[in-house]
Computed example of a mutant assay.
Amino acid sequence: MADPVTSAPPSADLRPLARLVAGRGVVVLSGAGLSTESGIPDYRGETGSRRRGAPMTYQEFTGSEAARRRYWARSHAGWRTIARAEPNAGHRAVERLRRSGHVSAVITQNVDGLHRAAGTRDAVELHGGLDRVICLTCRHLSSRAELDRRLTELNGASAAPGADSQADGDAVLPDEAVAGFRVAPCLECGGVLKPDVVFFGESVPMPRVERCFDLVAAGQLLLVLGSSLTVMSGLRFVRRAAKDGTPVVIVNQGPTRGDELAAARIGLPLGPALTELADLVGESAPPA
């Protein structure tokens, strides 16, 4: 009988995966599904909500003052959900596996900073981080918390009515809440501020992509957590691992674009599953 970790159907038995993870250089690729247990809605999937409205594109943001006003009004409201979120059991389990030497690298498609908050300081944030703001003119980086204070001063407390946020910090607001919103310029040069994240229509910086490819190439197992792999920015790493003969295991509630390339797909809630996996692997250092 075939070992469940090499079979195509979704598996709920984590013992075969624990045997793979123990002593291996595991590269984690995480997606929005990992953060749903922290109260941040997913874009899609069984545990999340589908996006309400089209996402902001880089071209629209840079080309229209009205679009920037709409983005910052909605993002200012949605920021509350991101700012108060804390790492969940899944983030903490990944950090346990990293500290014990079993996870060699973490690549995340998320922009919520929760891997960093859990202690994984060197996680590669493929799409950037919402807690940073960049000026498109002088490239000065500043904190989102500082900008939040400035936007509240400009617009009053009523500017952030506590609307539900999506995984990218966007929130749906009525037109009247957007029309009079005042946008803050860069304090260094007066230029246009943008969150330090990769928008739709914008490319991930090539050095960051190359670093991720190098990490995947050096790993012995690619563990995908909470990603439907709908966008190519994450799927390309699964394809590279499969091409190189590196096993791919996907833990996600619902199908993904990478299922046919995976050695196994495990359809379990991530927090409990990863906690159990970390317990099974144990805290012992991997063999030399």
Rank of each mutant, 00 (worst) to 15 (best):
A123L: 05
E125A: 05
L126E: 02
L126G: 01
H127C: 03
G128M: 05
G128I: 07
G128R: 12
G129V: 10
G129N: 14
G129S: 10
D131H: 15
D131Q: 13
V133R: 09
V133P: 00
V133K: 12
I134T: 15
C135T: 06
C135L: 05
L136V: 02
C138E: 00
C138N: 05
R139C: 03
H140M: 00
S142V: 02
S142A: 08
S142C: 01
A145S: 13
A145G: 02
T152M: 07
E153Q: 14
E153S: 12
E153H: 13
L154I: 09
L154M: 13
S158V: 09
S158Y: 07
S158A: 15
A160K: 15
P161Q: 14
P161Y: 14
G162D: 06
G162F: 13
D164L: 08
S165H: 09
S165R: 11
S165D: 05
A167E: 02
A167D: 03
A167Y: 10
D168Q: 07
D168F: 01
D168R: 10
D168W: 04
G169H: 07
A171S: 14
A171C: 03
A171T: 11
V172W: 10
V172D: 06
L173Q: 03
L173E: 01
E176I: 04
E176Q: 12
E176A: 11
A177N: 11
V178L: 07
A179C: 02
G180K: 13
R182C: 00
R182V: 14
P185Y: 13
L187A: 14
